[in-house]
Amino acid sequence: MARSSTRRRPAAPTADGGVNPKAPCPCGSGRRYKHCHGSGYAPQVARPFEGLPGEPHWVALRELVPAATVALRTADGRDVTLASVLPGGVPALVRANGEILLGVQLPASSDDVSRDLGTALAAALEAPAGAPVDPGPVGGAGSAGPRLQELLDLEAPFAVTVHPDFGFWLEGADTGPAAQAGLEQANQAILPTEALEGLGAAYWVRPGSERAHLRWVRPEPEERLLDALARLSASGEILLGEGTRYAGAFRAHGLVVPVWDLPADTPAADWVGPATAFQERLERALAATEPLNADERRARAGLISRQITLR
């Protein structure tokens, strides 16, 4: 669901309070303070997961992947399990054995998703085992905790495990019929999803019996990627094989997510080869430096017309 890109903030400190209005804003947006938090409005942080290992996967787990987990480590050595979503959409929980789970899909968000999640993680790190996590306001102007980049070990590996269902919610827990019923209900909403091995944040999903999709979160800057895709589109090299169609792209959290329609009856593993070949074509197109020709410019305009933004 689209979310507002600007949200009202409480009155920001003035220059007399020690903030130079022409200096970069302390929030890290890259804007001058007077045009960012100094204006009384907070522009949405374009790439909230920038600087984290696995940035494209963070975007995928936030927007595209229904059930997945990642083992994280905090800067002070504590283990955390990142989950695509937690029961009831809660931002974090601490199990009776002390295991901390952080959910990346939240029902609301502020101008900085990283700060929302960092606020929840900071509260979970302080919560006793088995106790409810109360991070305070998350997803609004009141989210004032640390960012993920301040809390996590940025050198730790980032390996996604995609699950066929939400069984990981109840691992190691003594649950009753109500919890099991809730789990079964949640599982019914999951679309079959698989990661394509060795291809970064490339995820196959089958939403029905007629078509499947490949959704591929790309790490490249948007303008450079669009130029490369335009070159491939104009040359007829943007497809993944017979029966495929380039459907368009999402723009999510500062990254572009190209999407292809695929035949539904072809298993996910069978697309690793075609996608690898496309990756090689894309790398050549990304390396090109000559200006786009007329056909490529028309192709680029067509690509932009089929691109939507998720917020």
Rank of each mutant, 00 (worst) to 15 (best):
R7Y: 00
R8E: 11
R9M: 09
T14R: 14
N20W: 02
P21W: 03
K22I: 01
K22V: 09
C25T: 08
C25K: 02
G30R: 06
R31H: 13
R31P: 00
R31Y: 08
H35G: 04
S39T: 13
G40L: 13
P43Q: 07
F49Q: 03
G51K: 06
G54L: 03
G54Y: 00
H57T: 00
H57N: 04
A60G: 05
R62Y: 10
P66N: 09
A71D: 14
A75Y: 10
G77E: 01
R78L: 06
G88I: 08
P91T: 00
A96M: 05
N97K: 07
N97W: 05
E99T: 13
G103V: 03
V104Q: 02
D111V: 03
D111S: 06
D112A: 04
V113Q: 09
S114G: 15
D116E: 11
G118Y: 04
G118M: 03
A120E: 04
A123W: 03
L125A: 12
G130R: 10
G130K: 08
G130I: 06
A131K: 10
A131V: 09
G136S: 11
G140H: 12
A141F: 10
A141V: 15
G142E: 14
S143Q: 07
S143W: 07
L148D: 05
Q149V: 15
E150M: 01
E155L: 12
P157Y: 10
F158S: 02
A159I: 10
P164Y: 05
D165E: 08
F166Y: 15
A173Y: 05
D174Y: 03
G176Q: 14
A178Y: 11
L183K: 07
L183M: 04
E184I: 00
Q188N: 10
I190D: 11
A195F: 01
A195W: 01
A195E: 11
L196E: 05
Y203G: 01
V205D: 02
G208H: 13
G208L: 01
R211N: 04
L214R: 12
R215I: 11
W216P: 00
P219L: 07
P221Y: 09
E223Y: 03
R224L: 15
D227H: 13
L229Q: 13
A230F: 09
A230P: 11
S233M: 15
I238D: 08
L239E: 11
L240H: 14
L240M: 15
E242W: 11
G243K: 12
T244H: 14
Y246L: 13
G248F: 12
A249F: 07
R251A: 15
G254R: 08
W260I: 09
W260Q: 09
D265K: 06
P267C: 07
P267G: 05
D270W: 02
L286P: 05
P291L: 11
L292G: 02
N293W: 07
D295K: 10
R297C: 00
R298K: 12
A301R: 15
I304F: 06
L310V: 05
